[in-house]
């Protein structure tokens, strides 16, 4: 059991990430040696901690907004009275996810100008789609006998939603949230081009000023941020699927990575059921 513990990725990812976020200046000699032409060797526009906090805040707030809108719309689409809207909402989610995230970000600029606001809008809009899609799929996947039994026992519609449908749909909904958040971390980095203060700033600054070391510094931090977040979601997924038979839990052979972001690809391969 303890050997398994040490293979838990969070155990080494978190300290590694913390090191880069807080201790980038410590790597000064390394970057000075590798890229002698770049002065100063470490990106000095803002501390990486500040950049990460802005970035995380932007992703967190927009993800929360996406969550509320996406799950809300998904619930409406699966109620008897909202049933009519389900097909068109699913179509909207599918088509919308065909739009490249960077295009959605670009389109937000004419509407809202520059800065954090268009980035926030683009992140929220784009994040709603996978969450909506997965909420509908998850709620629709609740076995009919379970719902019938719940209704027959005298649970109100609200109780059925809260105690039966949502808990059973939670793993699928969580997968949608995971996709939305991971994509948003990347899109928020690109948001630096429209003036949002994020971890993309050193990358963009480095690309524009031909300072490769800044690009690498920014890239390492944002990449680790994404990987760490994905690992946290995987932990959460495991916890939520405790009640399932071990076959149904799809514990992937060889580790947690397999069922991560690639789950989106897998879901589309097998037609949405994951």
């Amino acid at each position: 059991m303890s050997a398994r513990r040490y293979r838990d990725p969070l155990l080494w990812l978190a300290p590694l990430f913390a090191f880069f976020v807080l201790g980038m200046p410590a790597l000064r000699p390394v970057f000075a040696w590798a890229f002698p032409a770049v002065e100063p060797p470490i990106y000095a526009g803002d501390t990486f901690l500040a950049l990460w906090l802005f970035h995380a805040a932007l992703v967190a707030v927009s993800s929360f907004a996406s969550l509320v809108l996406g799950i809300g719309a998904g619930i409406i689409a699966t109620r008897r009275w909202g049933h009519e809207f389900r097909a068109i909402l699913e179509a909207l989610a599918t088509i919308g996810q065909t739009f490249p995230p960077v295009a959605v970000l670009a389109l937000a600029v004419p509407a809202l100008g520059y800065g954090a606001l268009p980035t926030f809008l683009a992140l929220t809009l784009y994040g709603v789609l996978p969450i909506l899609q997965n909420t509908i799929a998850g709620l629709a996947g609740v076995p009919e006998p379970v719902r019938e039994a719940a209704e027959g026992m005298g649970l109100t519609q609200a109780e059925i939603l809260a105690k039966v449908e949502l808990p059973l749909a939670a793993p699928v909904i969580l997968a949608g949230i995971r996709i939305a958040v991971i994509i948003n971390i990347g899109t928020a980095a690109i948001g630096s081009t429209v003036g949002a203060v994020t971890l993309g700033a050193p990358i963009i600054g480095g690309l524009v000023g031909d300072k490769t070391s800044y690009v690498i510094q920014g890239a390492i931090v944002v990449a680790l941020f994404a990987i760490l977040t994905d690992a946290c979601f995987e932990r959460l997924r495991r916890r939520l699927e405790r009640y399932k038979a071990s076959g149904a839990r799809r514990d992937p052979p060889g580790g947690w990575q397999v069922a991560g972001f690639g789950a989106r690809v897998r879901a589309k391969v097998s037609g949405g059921s994951g």
Partner: peptide, 29 residues
């Protein structure tokens, strides 16, 4: 060879998680 599925897809999945702008950036050097 299904037993290598974990390692292979694990690595590829790791790549997918990395934001695009970061991967582009990391490959420049």
């Amino acid at each position: 060879r299904p037993h290598i599925a974990g390692a292979v897809f694990g690595t590829l999945n790791l790549l997918q998680t990395i934001p695009s702008i970061a991967l582009f950036g990391l490959l420049i050097a």
